[in-house]
């Protein structure tokens, strides 16, 4: 009952959000701010985690594939497939759900409890459209860029790891990276990313927008935003994989 209610409210809020902005110029300005705030500011954390996870995966693959019967370039190949298919799109989206989701929910939630959203409304502005639409748009455009970046950095991390440890020659590793390229894999990853980006921004926007009370409730909303979007990301990961890969 509570869940159905929440879904209903969410759908109503999204219907308000997806309207034509009152002023294109103001929307573009807001979008630009959100690119910076939600996208550019996330580059550091994405690069750091991707680099290390890429290195760790390469080392684990080398550890697993230490049979003389298996060609060494498979280490590079499996590292690549794991990064592209799952680590970059899903794990990075989960990390962005934590970083971006909590920031969206607390920003909008604070505006709610300090009556800034009411102020927008009485001015004759559609607050959902003004606040949430640029964030959803920014995330759906910028997250794919971040995820491709994460793939590149992750594979570079793997290359650095094998080069330093010498478990496998960097040349074999690179041959593995180049083996059996499937453009559809990248398309699959990007489709997932765009869906996850929508989930992160819209769900966090919802929890922020519907805060009632004070600062404690803003904190709670921000936690709910991260937990719910993470759960939804995993569920949709399964659904999309079933739809697109099998």
């Amino acid at each position: 009952m509570g869940l159905l209610h929440t879904i209903g409210d969410y759908v109503v809020l999204m219907a308000q959000t997806f309207k034509r902005p009152d002023k294109g110029k103001v929307f573009r300005k807001q979008l630009f701010i959100d690119f910076q705030h939600l996208g550019v500011d996330s580059i550091g954390i994405v690069a750091f985690i991707s680099l290390f996870v890429g290195a760790i995966i390469a080392m684990q693959m080398a550890y697993n594939i230490s049979s003389p019967l298996v060609p060494l370039y498979l280490i590079g190949y499996t590292t690549k497939q794991m990064m592209i298919l799952e680590i970059s799109p899903t794990i990075m989206s989960l990390i962005l759900a934590g970083k971006v989701g909590s920031s969206i929910a607390s920003e909008i939630g604070t505006m709610r409890v300090t009556e800034q959203i009411d102020a927008l409304k009485v001015m004759g502005i559609n607050p959902a459209n003004y606040l949430i639409l640029p964030k959803i748009t920014a995330s759906m455009i910028y997250n794919p860029i971040l995820i491709v970046f994460s793939m590149v950095i992750g594979l570079f991390g793997g290359w650095v790891a094998v080069s330093i440890t010498g478990i496998v020659s960097p040349v074999d590793f690179v041959i593995g990276l180049q083996a059996w390229p499937v453009p559809y894999d990248i398309a699959y990853a990007l489709i997932k990313t765009v869906v996850f980006a929508f989930i992160i921004a819209s769900v966090s926007g919802y929890f922020g927008y519907t805060v009632k009370g004070g600062s404690v409730d803003v904190g709670r909303a921000s936690t709910k935003a991260v937990v719910s979007s993470s759960i939804l990301i995993i569920i949709f990961d399964l659904i999309l994989t079933q739809m697109l890969l099998t």
């Binding site: 604070t110 505006m111 300090t114 009556e115 800034q116 009411d118 102020a119 009485v122 001015m123 004759g124």
Partner: peptide, 16 residues
């Protein structure tokens, strides 16, 4: 009609 209204909220409600 809303554009003809000015509202001063209890806490100011300035956009921070």
């Amino acid at each position: 009609t809303r554009k003809e209204m000015g509202v001063l909220f209890q806490g100011g409600a300035l956009f921070d």
